[in-house]
Design a binder for these strands. Sequence first.
DNA 1: ATACCTACACTTACACCGTACATTTACAAT
DNA 2: ATTGTAAATGTACGGTGTAAGTGTAGGTAT
Lengths: 208, 208
Amino acid sequence: MVESKRRPLSRRRVLEAAVKFADREGLDALSMRKLGAQLGVEAMSLYNHVPNKDALLDGMVEVLLGELEVPSEDAGWEERIKEAYRGFRRLARRHPNIFPLLVVRPPDTMDGVWLVEEFMKTMRGAGFDPAISLYAFRTFSGYAMGYAMAEIRGFAMEPGGGRDGAATLPAEQFPHISGLGDTLDEVDRDAEFEFGLDLILAGLREKL
Amino acid sequence: MVESKRRPLSRRRVLEAAVKFADREGLDALSMRKLGAQLGVEAMSLYNHVPNKDALLDGMVEVLLGELEVPSEDAGWEERIKEAYRGFRRLARRHPNIFPLLVVRPPDTMDGVWLVEEFMKTMRGAGFDPAISLYAFRTFSGYAMGYAMAEIRGFAMEPGGGRDGAATLPAEQFPHISGLGDTLDEVDRDAEFEFGLDLILAGLREKL
DNA sequence: ATACCTACACTTACACCGTACATTTACAAT
DNA sequence: ATTGTAAATGTACGGTGTAAGTGTAGGTAT
């Protein structure tokens, strides 16, 4: 599982190896020594390409953001926005172990900025004024971030706790949750996420 | 700064001291040894009340959730929902260092369940059917979680990066962001958060 | 060719971490 | 006063991030 020594080390290679490692083993398991081993190198060698572990984590966020796709130009504004956030959610599902990093440490590079630019362009093009556009961006982003996070980690404050449906908790104490019946077990996450996007979009449309 | 030895140690006391410590010094600085010192006790003593550090962190989440208030019964359903999520955001602002824990580790106790029950009761009372109520819960929760998190950590993907406004980035490369002018510096976070809640509520109203 | 410089991998060492395990202390019940 | 038990302590181990110093291989200037 250790990479052969072929290519020379580089910041890029270190970051990508870190992402790969965390994808496989989890964030907690990621240590400089183990990452070094994975690259066929001693821990301290990494410091020639990354100033410290914190910067390594930041770099991993950078890598993730780089995976985001820009939605096609020729769709309508609503579809463009939805597609952008679907991509965000896909990213979370592709890297469930690492995604929390992105939530917890905002990128300190400009890699994320073009995403905002793209969003603003779409919104302005649709006829919204700047302030509304900005608010809308944060609403959508907050929603997508929170939903994706919840989906990955098992829905904090979810009816029925982490794993199972509403069956386990006392019906008389939580009548309205129990009233959900098996709605809980049949949730279609895609539809659910889409529902949220549509909800926000519907609200937005009224502001046009 | 160390607490006097007066009261006997207990799970509760340990958890609350941990919250206090992390509020003051940050999550990274929280170690069993330092927490012990803060309580005037050796590190290993803590293990008589908490099985390990992971459980300690879970317990801290539990404490945070316990701080949430249930909104007044006699307000309308929209106001009740808004008030509940305002409380959630207040919690985040009161414990900015610890709040990320709540996002990253869903509570494994039933402490959060009554929140859901309360939400469902309000929704059903307003006339929504169970499935919509559940979806709405997750939309609101995702939004509130994401927004609060972004607010605390400095708005990932925020126009202008972490600290300053749009002034720092090249206008010709990001015309639509620069077009925001100083809208960025004058954001009223309360109004912004409220805007998102209203957006979702507006969408929801159409489903009634 | 020789000398030098620079970049980068390696080695060692240190302080701190979570916690297993064994021991001592303190206190309640008999 | 004695015993039982729960809680606090002491010691130790393997792992962590990283500061500091030691090679060493490759390119440049002479």
